[in-house]
Amino acid sequence: MSRLHVVSGKGGTGKTTVAAALALALASGGKRALLVEVEGRQGIAQLFETEALPYEERKIAVAPGGGEVHALAIDAERALLDYLHMFYKLGSAGRALKKLGAIDFATTIAPGLRDVLLTGKACEAVRRKDRTGRYVYDYVVMDAPPTGRVTRFLNVNDEVAGLARIGPIHNQAQAVMRVLKSPETAVHFVTLLEEMPVQETADGIAELRAAGLPVGAVVVNMVRPPVLDEAAVEAAAGHRRAEVERALAGALERTGAGGSADAGRTGRVEALVAPLLEEAREHTERLALERRGRADVARLGLPAYELHLLGDGVDLAGLYRMARELRRQGMTGTA
């Protein structure tokens, strides 16, 4: 199993929700997982129904089996202060630079510096060990930028290492890339069974592979359960109105809702058939779209997992259900 799980996906696919569920799943059975946010949206705090996360690692959930999920919202400015203190011993001087606005200036003139700091902080958490030599966290899960930006975000340290040929900046960038390009890391994509998200997923995978970054799995999110059997789907797809009418008339007769008069029953059937046929038609179109989406996902040649749409929205209980489903399907290496 990889220890750093990077979760990306097109906007609207639920990547933050899947990242949170994956952290819970990985922490099950007594493990410790760190869930990292890098975009400053406080989406993790909202999902776990807690106050906004500060720039510190905080326990936010207990996983099944006694595991723990901690969370961290990485702030680029604070990460830069950590960096200055760690490599240049500029603790008080760094704080003075912050007051002068030098940190904002540095991250503005060098936009890539922000991504260097964010990825560096996450990789530091992956490598960190306690006094006994054990890893502090068994797993780190990163809620990463969307598909279109994730490759550049993860690969920025390669560019920095090429620009800074020697010194601590070069060494730090190289150390980060050793983690990101190793089997310790897996980049997962969240998609929906729709054309655009699946295509963006395919493009993102191709970009990652071209950059030499490790691709993990595809998580198909918000899958709608089928509500019609195959015979009903075929009848609706073929607009075989007579079959639908007979089925409805039989149902009304069995329930006693049809009444005794044939004319009255026929009128009720007519009133029901048109809207039901329209809903059935839309449902069959959706099923056909999902079949094509599944076939496209299968052609990617990666492990794929599915999570059902939660009709009442995602709350804390829903997150735990999603985590159980990811474990059941084997995404965490254990069922």
Rank of each mutant, 00 (worst) to 15 (best):
T50H: 06
T50A: 08
M86R: 15
M86S: 13
H85K: 15
R78D: 11
E57P: 13
K59A: 14
Y55D: 15
P64V: 01
E56V: 05
L80W: 13
A45L: 07
Y83P: 00
Q46E: 15
D75N: 15
A45T: 01
L80Q: 08
A52K: 15
V62S: 15
D82T: 08
Q46K: 14
L53F: 04
A73G: 14
A79G: 05
E51H: 12
Q46C: 03
D75V: 00
H70S: 14
E57C: 12
E51F: 02
E77T: 14
K59M: 12
E56H: 05
E57F: 03
L84S: 02
E68R: 10
L80R: 09
H70M: 14
A61Y: 05
H85M: 11
P64W: 01
Q46G: 08
E56F: 01
P64K: 01
L80V: 03
L53D: 12
G67S: 04
E68Q: 08
R58C: 03
A73Q: 15
P54W: 00
I60T: 06
G66V: 03
A76R: 12
L81F: 11
L72M: 07
L53T: 11
I44F: 03
L47R: 04
G66P: 02
E77S: 13
F48D: 02
E68W: 01
E57D: 09
I60C: 06
A61V: 02
V69N: 05
T50P: 00
T50D: 01
A52T: 10
I74G: 12
G67R: 02
V69H: 06
V69A: 04
K59W: 08
L81W: 12
A52F: 01
Q46W: 09
Y55V: 02
R58W: 05
F48S: 03
P54Q: 12
P64F: 00
H70A: 11
M86F: 10
A45K: 09
A63M: 00
E56I: 02
V69S: 07
L81Y: 06
I60N: 06
T50L: 13
E68C: 01
L84N: 05
A52Q: 13
P54M: 09
D75R: 09
T50C: 13
K59T: 14
G66K: 01
I44Q: 11
Y55L: 10
G67L: 02
G66C: 03
E57A: 15
K59I: 09
Y55Q: 14
I60Y: 02
Y83K: 04
D82H: 08
A79R: 06
L80F: 15
Y55E: 14
I60R: 06
P64L: 00
E51T: 13
H70Q: 09
D75E: 11
L80K: 03
A63N: 05
Y83N: 04
P64S: 06
F48K: 09
L84H: 08
L80T: 10
G65H: 06
F48V: 08
A79V: 01
F48A: 10
